[in-house]
Design a protein around this nucleic acid. Sequence first.
RNA 1: GGCGCGGUGGCAGAGUGGUCAUGCAGCUGACUGCAACUCAGUGUACGCCGGUUCGAUUCCGACCCGCGCCU
Length: 341
Amino acid sequence: MMSVMSSSLTDSLPPAIFLMGPTASGKTDLAVALRKHLPVELIGVDSSQVYRGMDIGSAKPTRELLEQVPHRLINIRDPSEAYSAADFAQDARKEMEGITRQGRIPLLVGGTMLYFKALLDGLADNPPSDLKIRKKIEADAREKGWPYLHAQLAEIDPESAGALHPNHSQRIQRALEIFQITGKPLSLIKRNQQEKGSLIESILNDYKLVQVALIPLDRLCLHQCIERRFKSMLDADFESEVQMLYERGDLHPDLSSLRAVGYKQMWRYLSGDISYDEVYRLGVIATRQLAKRQLTWLKKWPDLHQIHINYADEKKISSEKALVECLKILKNSCVYRNISQ
RNA sequence: GGCGCGGUGGCAGAGUGGUCAUGCAGCUGACUGCAACUCAGUGUACGCCGGUUCGAUUCCGACCCGCGCCU
């Protein structure tokens, strides 16, 4: 019903805010601070924080903070369960509608860029993943190698295969999976999405969106922050947290929950694979690489307002600066016009 | 002081008289239902000085540094 509004009425659409940024950039602090100035309700955009019992390692807001400032879409799955970008897009849309209905503004905060993208671009009418088919494809790959499956894909869907490297296991698998379920090539389904609209539509039709990202000015300093934070996770007894999951007995490291940065390394330690020192070393490396990938997304992100963080500043000062700048950005957008004063 | 072994890119670690080791890190990038995933690209490296040679990281000599042993 909201989507019938034409784009010329874009200013009368309800507002929504995206707050993005690499890991350890201070997104949560800023979001919480914003809530004191604007009638916002937070929605987490984080593929690890959706899992219950994964608190320290996912840098989840503390229990106390969550009580004061509720975050939606956090703690909504057991680590044994799957959660996908499509699940998120659906859930987030529902939450956004609820928040808007209360006359408040949805503020989506997090670092899972694919989730933001799914919301922004919508999703094609693709079938959900099918564990049985995936297992079969994996077994095939073990036997013949991914390049062989890539060649197979090239026969049924040359366009998708052309866009994929022969080693790109996960995406070759997905393209083959879609073909096996629907009998249609992925590239065709994508094209239809543009022509006929998609299963999950872009939120741009329904919201006046303001997109803000926290961008560290200096990479070296970001790396230092990452190191410091990972260290403090270990000091907060991250080991026990993972050990609890480990001792359940029904979890295994192939689950998407346990592939998360830190959890993966700690799991290896608990299995006797690496030393405790290696957990720290490899955990920090994995976090740095995550931040790099997040920044790569943000570099080409359209319609983005960037807030640069200067690590030369003290933490307090830098988060105050970020808040001031963010409020300025929001003031210049329609957010204030529609909601406040 | 003597003898032995070794000094290879940020780190680890092969090797060769004349195109590339490789792995990791770093950097860059890709990404439509696992995304904190997965994948790709990316380096004027051979301790120092001389010699042999058309050509030396590779052979020879001196020197410096490290390790071990001996007196």
